[in-house]
Amino acid sequence: MSEQTTHASCGLCRIEVEGLSVVRDGQTLLHDVGLHVHCGELTALIGTNGAGKTTLIRALLGEIPFTGTVRHLTQDGKPAAAVRTGYVPQQLEFDHSSPVTVMDFMTASLSRRAVWLGVSKRARREALEALSRTDCERLSDRRLGALSGGELQRVLLALALRPQPDLLILDEPVSGVDQNGLESFYQTVAALRAHNHMAVLLVSHDLDVVRRYADHVVLMQGTVLCQGRPKEVFESPEFGQVFYARGNEA
């Protein structure tokens, strides 16, 4: 465990998104999105395909231009330093037969020295330490492309936690991770958010996972339709309209 994990979560710091809109090629993809993601909480974004969940994440990652504000506030409501974001992408479309190992991938991200010049002992130790936070040190010499969906998720999570983010964004894979893998992944995430000073934002397609692990749920459809405790959102009329009226699943 790194020294950063000694912070207990205070539950008061938050990332505030206000009036966030994304317009591209004259089309409004997101309109006036407002949500607060508190540290120590797991906030789930749900909605049908095309509801703008991925667009919101891309905006928060700074990949696409948006209007509106994203602020990081400390417990007394003052602006803190810029939001440090950790990101676990959806299933990756990389070249699975490349000889790049988990260790190569981790050290390429964590150290400046080019991986082809050889991995230093220090970089190796640091990578193993990062991997240990999600219980995947044993994967270090496996090829990235040879990992199962669940193993890859853990490696990506280990990387996203180094350096410790203020906001951890998890883009859940639509497929490729088995139920057991998903379950243990969320247990790890749940433990992390409880013991660390960070907010977790999860895009999920699995409403069952959301029901069990989320503290706060945001239902999206171009904008925020409804948000609150999981129970409140799942019982809201908006939820029924989005998921049942049109015969859609998440």
């Binding site: 990652l61 700074g62 950790g86 990101y87 400046r112 080019a114 991986v115 082809w116 990506l156």
Partner: peptide, 22 residues
């Protein structure tokens, strides 16, 4: 140049958004 761009290039080849977030 390769000594400088290899790591970023490796990350980008795995996932550009992930690389961007780092």
């Amino acid at each position: 140049v390769w000594a400088y761009v290899f790591n970023p290039l490796l990350l980008t080849s795995v996932n550009a958004s992930l690389a961007g977030s780092r």
